[in-house]
């Protein structure tokens, strides 16, 4: 779960990384050695949420957005 939260944090703050998370998630699954369940969450609800984010997410909004995504991950993996 921690690895997935770290990935989403970077995807919020770095648009290039976000594009990889959205459109080549398999690369991250392999690189970060995510579990099959974590991979499902990345390619499912997290991808959907990332697609709704503005470009860029303003620094003042990082904390709120990252907290919301972390809650989605915790709920999905609990």
């Amino acid at each position: 779960m921690d690895k997935l939260i770290e990935i989403t944090k970077r995807a919020v703050e770095d648009y290039g990384f976000r594009q990889i998370a959205q459109w080549s998630p398999e690369d991250l699954v392999v690189q970060w050695q995510l579990s099959s369940r974590e991979a499902e969450v990345l390619k499912g609800p997290i991808k959907d949420e990332l697609g709704q984010l503005p470009v860029p997410v303003e620094p003042r909004d990082y904390s709120a957005v990252e907290g919301r995504l972390a809650d989605i991950i915790k709920k999905a993996l609990s």
């Binding site: 703050e13 770095d14 648009y15 290039g16 976000r18 594009q19 470009v55 860029p56 303003e58 620094p59």
Partner: peptide, 11 residues
């Protein structure tokens, strides 16, 4: 571009 806007990290 979206990439430049995203990489700038702020408007």
């Amino acid at each position: 571009t979206p990439q430049a806007r995203g990489s700038s990290q702020s408007s």
